[in-house]
Amino acid sequence: MLNGGGDGVPAPAATAETDATAPPPGGTPMIVFEAVTKVYDPNVVALREASFVIEKGEFVFLVGPSGSGKSTIMRLLLKELDPTGGRILVGGRELARLKGSKVPMLRRNLGCVFQDFKLLTDRTAYENVAYALKVQGESKRDIRSKVPEILALVGLGAKMNNHPHELSGGEQQRVSIARAFVNHPPLLICDEPTGNLDPDTSVGIMQLLYRINRTGTTVVMATHDREMVDKMRKRVIALEEGTVVRDERRGGYG
C-alpha cells in the first residue's frame, strides 16, 4: 500500500526512508499522526486511521481528489476540529491535550495559507500582515520594521498600501504567505495555495514556498496541482477516501 510506484516514477533513494516510523534524524518530529480518524456527522468518514510522521524542515505534498481528507488534515492541525480517534502531535505536543485558551498560541507558531487567501478585505496588504503581529502583542516598532521586510521578500514591496481588491490573485496569495511567515513559524501549512491561480503565477508561489522551506521551515501543502508535484520531486502523501494510500520520499502526483 505504501510505496506504490505511481506511474513508474523511480524512487531509488527514498525506498528505505518511506517507513514513516523510522527514527527521526534530529529531535522531535514536526507532525505526528497516529491512526487519526475523523468522522463528521452523520457518519461521514473524512479520515480513516491516517498515520504519518513529518520531520522538521521537510516539504510535504498532500495529494488526492476532493473529499479525500486533505483539508480535514489541515483543519485538524489548526485545531479547528478535534479528531474522533487517534493522536496528533505538533512539535511534540498533543493537540487533544491543548486547552482552548492555548489554541491561539498554537496558531501563532503555525502559518497557514489558503486557496481563498482569507485576507481582511478592508485592510491594505501592510495592515493585513501587521494584524498577525498585533495579535501577538508585538510592539509598534517591530511591526514597522518587520512588515515591509517580509512584503519585500515576497515581492510586494511596492504594493504595500494596496487593498486586496487592487491586487491580482497571485499578489493576494503573496500577501497571505507574508502574513503566515512574518512570525517565522516553524511550520507552514498551505491548503491548495495555487488552487485559484494560473500556472505561471503558481510557479512563482511555489518558488516562494520553496525558498521559505529552505530557511528551515516545515511546509505541508495540500494540492491538486499534478504538474507541480511531479516537478518538485518532494515527499508525497497520497490520500483516497480518507485513507493514506501512498507515502513517498521523492514522489509524483501518482
Partner: peptide, 16 residues
C-alpha cells in the same frame, strides 16, 4: 464572520 475567522486563524485570542 469571515473577518473573525481570519483573526482566529492568525492566532488572535477570543478577547482580542
Amino acid at each position: 464572520r469571515r473577518e473573525i475567522e481570519v483573526m482566529k486563524l492568525v492566532g488572535a485570542t477570543n478577547w482580542f
